Amino acid sequence: MAYRTHRGRAWIITPALNSERFPTAHAASAGVALVDLEDSVAPADKQRARHKAEKYFHATDTASTLGVRMNSPLTLDGIKDLVALAGYTARPDLVLVPKTESARDIELVASVLDAPGYTPDIWALIETPRAFDHLPQILAAPRLGGVVFGSADYAATVRCAMTWEALLYVRAALVNAATAAGIPAIDAPAFHLDDPDALREEAERAKELGFFGKGAVHPRQAAVINEVFLPSETEIARARAIVAAGEKSGNSVTAVDGQMVGTPFFAAARAVVADADAAR
């Protein structure tokens, strides 16, 4: 998978028309830095955005995975996006497919873009009620790398509030389905531009639910998201202690710092240790 988990757990997105922001996005310490051809670009500007977006992928001084959010492949603009992307001299490592509602959406993108020596990571943006009704089928797509929750479009369609409580069910459903399919899920951005405490609280809740990372609406949010989702030194030390206790007990139930631990605790601790070792 192209996504570099050790770089960070934040996903940032930059409008393709704002090429002056590209260097900032590349330097934001995000796991994935996307250039946007979809919601941030007016219909009349789509072709100009496609032309400007190619410059985004020529960066050589970033450790982030560089990707693109295209338009839905079931639209004319989405088809034009695919034609443009296929012709780029520098191409994205990751393609985020909005309004995904079937595995065919992923297969269509792969069939157009896959080429000798180039198979981009393809992720689905899950943001409609129909998509949630078809999650098992979507997540079975062989070329699917992961899923991202689109809270704004979902809430607008359902006409529900964008509060944590109103969207808790679909968030949990997405994490559950993604875990069953063995792929990561990224939470929707927090749209609080100037409230780092609200961002941190929402990121912590997303992590508690099982999300692998979280979207960001501004590069300065990346540091908070990375701090929340990447294991702290305290978490790493405890995880190593649990792994050691499991090995010592032959993976039988034992105790660490007064807490009973067993098989599921050992598995969770090994995952934390693996993340920490990869980051180093």
Score class of each variant (00 low, 15 high):
residue 178 A to Y: 01
residue 195 D to F: 01
residue 200 R to F: 01
residue 148 V to Q: 07
residue 233 E to T: 14
residue 227 E to A: 15
residue 151 S to A: 13
residue 115 A to Y: 03
residue 144 L to A: 06
residue 120 P to E: 14
residue 216 A to H: 02
residue 192 H to E: 14
residue 160 C to W: 07
residue 230 L to E: 13
residue 185 A to Y: 04
residue 114 D to T: 12
residue 159 R to G: 09
residue 149 F to A: 07
residue 200 R to T: 15
residue 125 L to K: 08
residue 220 R to N: 04
residue 128 T to P: 11
residue 215 G to S: 01
residue 145 G to K: 03
residue 192 H to Q: 09
residue 202 E to H: 11
residue 237 A to K: 14
residue 118 Y to W: 11
residue 233 E to D: 15
residue 194 D to Y: 05
residue 212 F to L: 08
residue 197 D to F: 03
residue 219 P to N: 09
residue 215 G to V: 01
residue 188 A to M: 08
residue 134 H to V: 05
residue 148 V to S: 07
residue 135 L to V: 11
residue 192 H to M: 04
residue 120 P to G: 13
residue 140 A to D: 13
residue 166 A to Y: 04
residue 178 A to H: 05
residue 136 P to W: 12
residue 220 R to M: 05
residue 199 L to N: 08
residue 208 E to T: 12
residue 120 P to R: 15
residue 185 A to I: 00
residue 154 Y to T: 00
residue 155 A to D: 06
residue 128 T to N: 09
residue 219 P to K: 04
residue 186 I to Y: 02
residue 237 A to D: 14
residue 117 G to R: 15
residue 155 A to N: 08
residue 225 I to Q: 03
residue 239 A to R: 07
residue 229 F to M: 06
residue 239 A to M: 08
residue 235 E to K: 08
residue 135 L to N: 08
residue 187 D to L: 10
residue 112 V to S: 10
residue 137 Q to P: 07
residue 239 A to S: 10
residue 117 G to I: 11
residue 137 Q to E: 15
residue 138 I to T: 11
residue 207 K to D: 02
residue 140 A to C: 02
residue 217 V to D: 10
residue 190 A to C: 15
residue 143 R to I: 00
residue 178 A to I: 00
residue 146 G to S: 04
residue 173 A to I: 09
residue 119 T to C: 15
residue 190 A to L: 04
residue 203 A to V: 01
residue 130 R to L: 13
